[in-house]
Simulated assay, not measured.
Amino acid sequence: MTVTDTRRNLVNPLIRAWTTDAIATDFISGTDSLTASSIGYSAGPATILSGSAGVTETTRETLLNTVPVQTGASTTGNHVVRWRPTLTIAVPGLKSAGEYQGSLTHSVS
């Protein structure tokens, strides 16, 4: 995941925070499903590729609803931040083996 912030706030350059949210759909196979409530998200450490930003990572146990997963604050100037999240999926023993499809959506505000 990469956030590129090129906003300019010349009046007060420190007020340029952002939050990245994530949500998942249920993961579905031809015969079974894994609910989004069983999908966990760990943002992991952020790498500041350019500029300056204080980034706070968050671990979530469920992606059933939109939840904040990474927050950038104390930013100055344009900056680029990247991280590689880890998803964990709790699979009950009676679920069918096979391919499951679903989606993970990130948004930045």
Score class of each variant (00 low, 15 high):
15 I>Q: 11
47 T>K: 06
76 T>A: 13
49 L>E: 01
80 V>W: 06
32 D>E: 05
24 A>D: 02
20 T>K: 12
39 I>H: 05
59 T>A: 14
52 S>F: 15
22 A>H: 01
47 T>S: 14
87 L>G: 04
49 L>Q: 13
54 G>F: 07
71 T>H: 06
40 G>Y: 10
28 I>D: 11
43 A>T: 05
82 R>Y: 10
74 S>G: 07
38 S>A: 14
82 R>C: 12
40 G>I: 09
49 L>D: 13
89 I>R: 06
60 R>W: 11
84 R>I: 13
82 R>S: 14
84 R>D: 08
44 G>C: 04
57 E>S: 14
41 Y>D: 08
10 L>T: 09
75 T>R: 13
48 I>M: 00
78 N>M: 10
71 T>V: 15
60 R>H: 11
34 L>M: 01
71 T>M: 09
58 T>G: 00
32 D>R: 06
65 N>K: 09
50 S>Q: 11
35 T>D: 00
16 R>Q: 15
17 A>D: 08
90 A>S: 01
41 Y>N: 03
22 A>T: 06
69 V>C: 02
72 G>Y: 02
49 L>I: 11
76 T>N: 14
61 E>C: 15
12 N>R: 11
54 G>M: 00
20 T>Y: 02
53 A>Q: 08
69 V>G: 04
64 L>Y: 11
55 V>Y: 04
86 T>H: 07
39 I>N: 02
16 R>T: 14
26 D>L: 02
29 S>C: 02
84 R>H: 09
64 L>S: 14
77 G>E: 08
67 V>R: 05
32 D>K: 00
20 T>V: 14
14 L>F: 11
74 S>Q: 10
50 S>P: 10
27 F>H: 00
90 A>R: 06
79 H>N: 15
28 I>T: 15
59 T>M: 08
52 S>T: 15
69 V>R: 02
60 R>P: 07
62 T>C: 12
80 V>L: 05
41 Y>V: 08
58 T>K: 12
85 P>E: 10
44 G>E: 06
88 T>W: 06
39 I>R: 05
81 V>D: 01
15 I>M: 11
70 Q>Y: 07
60 R>T: 14
13 P>H: 06
29 S>W: 03
52 S>Y: 15
69 V>Y: 00
48 I>H: 01
26 D>K: 01
15 I>P: 05
25 T>Y: 02
53 A>T: 14
13 P>T: 09
36 A>T: 02
85 P>A: 14
57 E>H: 08
56 T>I: 10
35 T>H: 00
50 S>A: 07
50 S>K: 10
55 V>D: 07
36 A>M: 00
75 T>E: 07
45 P>W: 07
19 T>N: 03
41 Y>L: 07
49 L>K: 09
75 T>M: 13
43 A>F: 09
82 R>D: 13
12 N>P: 01
34 L>Q: 00
53 A>M: 10
13 P>L: 04
38 S>I: 04
61 E>Y: 13
91 V>N: 05
73 A>T: 04
12 N>W: 08
54 G>N: 06
10 L>I: 09
61 E>K: 15
